[in-house]
Design a protein around this nucleic acid. Structure first.
Length: 514
RNA sequence: CGCCCUGUGGUCAAAUGGUGAAGACGUGGCACUUUCUAUGCUAAGUUCAGGGUUCGAUUCCCUGCAGGGUGACCA
């Protein structure tokens, strides 16, 4: 495959959905793999749905994921402009070309007339009325009107649309790399509007014209486009561009966790999981939400997870760097059926990525999150801390959320452990153990542990009687990294204070209970 | 309702016209760790249904059923 040119063509109607990120990723992977070109095209032909900031959000998202296009708005490229609104004048010419060729026609029906027609048809028992075949002969358009009437209407500046003139009784075959041959009957196809009343093209026209002009070789997009691809194929034929028509690949959809429908923003809200890459700040709180980034995901993990939703390399390898994905990717490896969004699997990928990172890298990423919580420490401290915590966290933010006791004094002691273990017969030994720990020099985990174990063995004591208390005294809870690692990192002074405070607390609470 | 797509364990999925249908996530158990993790081992669980072709079908064909998509002067 040579000179591959693919495009990701989102509409700036809001935040970029995670399914869009996957589409972008597959496009990116194919381009990279074959040394091709990955293009971003903004499909902003619907002025009514345009959302300020959406285009920027798309760029930021691709940037975060590290799958940036090389041609697109603000990036240059020989086939610009890359915003369809800036190409507006271009499309009309092509629409009229179709009219001239008899493959499209002017239509003057008002929205009200269209509604009336649909209502009329429904009453007749036609459940999905199509503007085509017999019906178009009953509407107001350049097929039913005389040339003179059409001319007058156009000259009077009356609003009009241009509709595709779909032929009858033909079969259109769509060749899809993922789905094989998909055939449609033209009688089931409607005469789609290609140029709207406001002079803007619809998706269908703009898409075909731009893909042709931008020399796109592969159209990789969501399955929701499959039904209209018959129209697209017909348009390539009408224009005489069939020999350079791109190859289609319609991706299976990402479904809701329960499998009922496409994944949507609501699912994220409802289930407390991100559905977008980055946070979006809408006009209202309801329209604002966090993304994978804010949730504490590593972008590589997100990409790896998304890549596997509908694609797999056919081997047992699951963890792939972006370069490895490029290497392994193939359109044939894409499945046909929709994949449910499995948040557990996403979490697993993230755990894998976090725990495989070296401590220094982690420290750089985690430090700002700690500072956000008011936790300050030296870089060395954070680095060691990350090393201890990285196999115990799922998200980046967990470092601060689960490792808080490294940065603040213990506020609460696990009551169960205190009650169960703080017994008279152990108190003395516990105090002796503390003394041994505090007198350890050098103050490192191994030395400490050896000395304490020696003490326990010599006095025929049990680890289980002393260690839980020690952990609770240091951290408050019976969770976390090896206790001597924690002690060593916290340092002698801090540990001394914590132990003193703890023993005092242990003594008080248990005495009250007696 | 029309048209289109899809149908392998709870989820993501591999493979095959013919021995016991990979693997991963999740779930249970065991080991390790006298914490929590991680890790290793292990268990349970599956070819949507019915026909047909065939010596033999999860695989090929048909029908049914189920799920999804689409049916705008939205993309």
């Amino acid at each position: 495959m040579n000179n591959i040119r693919v495009r990701f063509a989102p509409s700036p109607t809001g935040a970029l959905h995670i399914g869009g990120v996957r589409t972008a990723l597959y496009n990116y992977l194919l381009a990279k793999k074959y040394n091709g070109t990955f293009i971003l095209r903004i499909e902003d032909t619907d002025q009514t749905r345009y959302i300020e900031g959406a285009e920027d959000y798309i760029m930021q998202s691709l940037k975060w994921c590290n799958i940036l296009p090389v041609e697109g708005p603000g990036m240059g490229g020989a086939y610009g402009p890359y915003r369809q609104s800036e190409r507006k004048d271009l499309y009309k010419k092509y629409a009229i070309e179709l009219v001239t060729k008899g493959r499209a026609y002017y239509a003057f029906d008002t929205p009200e007339e269209l509604d009336a027609m649909r209502l009329r048809e429904k009453e007749k028992g036609n459940h999905s009325p199509l503007y085509n075949g017999a019906i178009k002969k009953s509407m107001t358009n350049s097929i039913t009107l005389s040339d003179q009437e059409v001319k007058e209407r156009l000259e009077s500046g009356a609003p009009y649309t241009i509709r595709l003139n779909i032929p009858s009784d033909e079969t259109v075959i769509v060749n899809d790399i993922i789905r094989g041959e998909v055939s449609f009957q033209t009688n089931d196809l409607d005469d789609k509007i290609v140029l709207k009343g406001d002079g803007m093209p619809t998706y269908h026209l703009a898409n075909i014209v731009d893909d042709h002009l931008m020399k796109i070789t592969h159209v990789i997009r969501g399955e929701e486009w499959l039904p209209s691809t018959a129209h697209h194929v017909l348009m390539y034929r009408f224009f005489g561009w069939e020999d350079t028509m791109p190859t289609f690949a319609h991706l299976p959809l990402i479904l809701k966790p329960n499998g009922k429908g496409k994944l949507s923003k609501r699912d994220g809200d409802k289930l407390g999981m991100p559905v977008f890459p980055l946070a979006w700040k809408g006009k209202t709180p309801e329209d604002s939400f966090d993304g994978f980034k804010e949730h504490g995901f590593d972008p590589q993990a997100v990409l790896n997870f998304l890549a596997f939703l509908g694609w797999n390399p056919g081997t047992e390898q699951e963890i792939f760097s972006l370069d490895e994905l490029v290497e392994a990717f193939s359109l044939d490896g894409i499945g046909k059926s929709g994949a449910r969004f499995d948040f557990d699997k996403a979490k697993w990928f993230n755990e894998q990525y976090i725990s495989s990172k070296n401590n220094k890298t982690l420290a750089v990423l985690v430090k700002p999150l700690l500072e956000e919580k008011g936790y300050n420490a030296t870089d060395d401290f954070i680095e060691t801390f990350c090393g201890m915590m990285k196999e115990r966290v799922t998200f980046y933010k967990d470092f601060a959320d689960k490792g808080y006791y490294f940065f603040e004094p213990v506020k609460e002691y696990d009551a169960k452990t205190v009650k169960k273990k703080w017994k008279d017969e152990h108190k003395n030994n516990f105090n002796k153990m503390i003394e041994i720990i505090l007198n350890t020099d050098p103050f490192d985990p191994t030395t400490m542990e050896n000395k304490v174990k020696e003490f326990i063995t010599e006095n025929e004591l049990k680890f289980g009687d002393l260690f839980p208390l020690l952990r609770v005294a240091i951290a408050g809870i019976v969770k976390g990294p090896p206790v001597f690692d924690m002690i060593a990192l916290l340092g002698k002074e801090e540990v001394k204070q914590r132990l003193e405070k703890a023993t005092e607390f242990f003594e008080n609470t248990t005495q009250q209970k007696v």
